[in-house]
Design a protein around this nucleic acid. Sequence first.
DNA 1: CTTGAAAATGAATGATCGTTCATTTATTTC
DNA 2: GAAATAAATGAACGATCATTCATTTTCAAG
Lengths: 208, 208
Amino acid sequence: MPSKAQRPVQGKRRQTASKVRAAALTLFARYGYAAVSMRQIASEVGVQPGALYNHFPTKQDILKDLMLSHMGELLTAWTSAKPHPQTDPLVAFARFHIRYHMERADEVFVSYMELRNLEADNFAAVDAERRRYEAILTGILEDGAANGRYALDDPKVTTRALIAMLTGIATWYRASGTLSRQTVEDYYINLVCRAVSLEPGKTQRENG
Amino acid sequence: MPSKAQRPVQGKRRQTASKVRAAALTLFARYGYAAVSMRQIASEVGVQPGALYNHFPTKQDILKDLMLSHMGELLTAWTSAKPHPQTDPLVAFARFHIRYHMERADEVFVSYMELRNLEADNFAAVDAERRRYEAILTGILEDGAANGRYALDDPKVTTRALIAMLTGIATWYRASGTLSRQTVEDYYINLVCRAVSLEPGKTQRENG
DNA sequence: CTTGAAAATGAATGATCGTTCATTTATTTC
DNA sequence: GAAATAAATGAACGATCATTCATTTTCAAG
């Protein structure tokens, strides 16, 4: 007799599948895909190894699912993000990227460390998404360079440099540390702005 | 009867050991430590698996050797690097870092992707070297910030941001591409300079 | 409550893993 | 060239790997 009726949402059906995803994500992030066994994942989920195959056909499919989901959610999140319309586009993108990546250290870690372990088809699919995401930043840089708002040598090189810098936060930032998320975000925004000679004070888009 | 006397240098003794290192480096960089077997390494060297154990006691020792050697050589290279004395210290360091890392993509890749696969003792040793290297840049930034040459929020955060940005070159730069090493180097130097508000034209150290 | 389907079990498959070792082969030392 | 030493072989070890499957258990729908 539960005091509040247990949600009968979609049965227990899809529950194990998402527990598998969660366990695999944590283990892959910590030990690496190749070093994690299906037995470890099963043990973490609290199930026998064979049961995993009711939800994912192979170990590789778990990795593919995690990485494609991450990229898909990242792109969706950007599309539906509505930054303050006065904010400079580069600043808006960088703030979005920093926040999203600080909140999902494991996903980020797996998604850029395990590319090597994707089979050819899966790599192509994930890499296409990654390029779509980078193209967003490249477009912003091209626009800003065209009208003189940013100073930069090459939009694609700058894209890779900035993405590497920002994504790197996930490799060292720990919520338990002394720096708050907001502080780290602000410091990195300053670095990004200066890297393209956008005066940090002038991050409001000029209208008219 | 060799036309030119075969170098009897140190016999064939250490020759296999360095072939093992080279093979392991290439394989680890391409497939990851955990995904590479001792049999693959032996096959690449042209030897039976058991022979590897005449040179390295375990697979883990090969990884430790590769990573510690890389860090040691990196620190030695910096110590013995003699940049033009008029060059701004940050520019000198960044140029050194970029060049060193573009020339050794495999070493760099292994050294920052395989940290997870080091046993505790080995990780501690490698990480200590890594921190020694980062401390060099942090020191440069602190000096420059103290006398107003650079604008930055936090030397340690800036160190991590710049190192991530610069090291990221190894993940995408290919000598076969359209961009020359010198071009990439120059673009990144501009990014670094602007990131700390050091006017790119003013990269000569002022004396007096 | 009955029925059909999905999920989980528990045991097994063959393959591959890192590592060992007695033996043979190659190299260095005297 | 003989003796000593190191390297390489080839076969084997037990452990663990991803995956399969007949069977049992659990769950959702009628």
